[in-house]
Computed example of a mutant assay.
Amino acid sequence: MLAALATFGTSILSALVPFVNLEVYLGVLATRIGDDAAAALTCAAAAGLGTVVGKLVWYWLAARSMQSQWVAKKLSKESWKRTFDRWHTTLAGRPWLTAAVLLAASIAGVPPLLVMSLVAGALRVRLEVFVPTVAVGRAVRAWLILAGVGAVLT
């Protein structure tokens, strides 16, 4: 239980502060929990939930910033506007595609989840899509790390 709470806290911090690496933490954790499948699943779930809590902060910051003068100034530049419009055209009204992109970002990190959290907030992606997709994707990523490192060490 203590490992799950520490994982939850570390995953929130990692989601908020890009240079805090959750994957390194999970690799070290895997060496401590070994082949305990229940501990790996619990910690993976904690990592997924903690990550979504942290990424929601970025999501809301992006959503709120869309009314700011700074963003209006950025979007007045053709390159920024073109990029924003491309994401909007691609994802708007397509929750399944949005979920697929968020899932790829959550599991593989391509595109980066921080960037996708900002894009999702700016585009006002429904929270019913964002929250479970990011939580499940990051839980899967965490489990793969925990199970993979544990398998190598046993």
Rank of each mutant, 00 (worst) to 15 (best):
A3S: 10
A3R: 11
A6S: 06
A6K: 15
F8T: 04
G9K: 08
I12A: 08
I12S: 03
I12E: 03
L13S: 03
L16Q: 02
L16W: 09
P18I: 15
F19Y: 12
L26N: 03
V28I: 15
R32Q: 13
G34D: 11
G34S: 09
D35A: 14
D36Q: 12
D36K: 06
A37K: 15
A39K: 01
A39V: 08
L41M: 14
A46S: 09
A46K: 05
G48S: 07
G48D: 06
G50T: 08
G50K: 07
V52P: 03
V53I: 15
V53E: 04
K55D: 01
L56K: 02
V57H: 08
Y59T: 05
Y59A: 04
W60T: 10
L61P: 00
A63Y: 13
A63T: 10
M66L: 12
Q69P: 00
Q69Y: 03
W70Q: 11
A72E: 11
K73E: 14
K73Y: 10
K74S: 05
S79V: 12
S79I: 13
W80T: 12
K81A: 12
R82L: 13
R82P: 00
R82K: 15
T83D: 09
T83Y: 05
T83H: 08
W87Q: 02
T89S: 11
T90R: 15
L91H: 02
L91E: 04
A92E: 14
R94C: 01
R94P: 00
P95E: 13
A99C: 06
A99I: 09
A99Y: 08
A100R: 07
V101I: 15
V101D: 03
L103T: 09
A105E: 01
A105K: 01
S106N: 07
I107G: 02
A108C: 12
G109E: 09
P111R: 04
L113E: 01
L113K: 05
M116K: 01
S117D: 03
V119S: 05
A120H: 07
G121Q: 05
A122D: 01
L123R: 07
R124N: 12
R124S: 11
E128I: 15
E128C: 07
V129Q: 03
F130P: 01
F130T: 06
P132S: 13
T133Y: 04
A135K: 05
V136M: 12
G137L: 11
A142R: 01
W143M: 09
W143V: 03
W143A: 14
L144Q: 06
L146R: 06
L146Q: 03
L146F: 07
A147E: 11
V149S: 06
V152G: 14
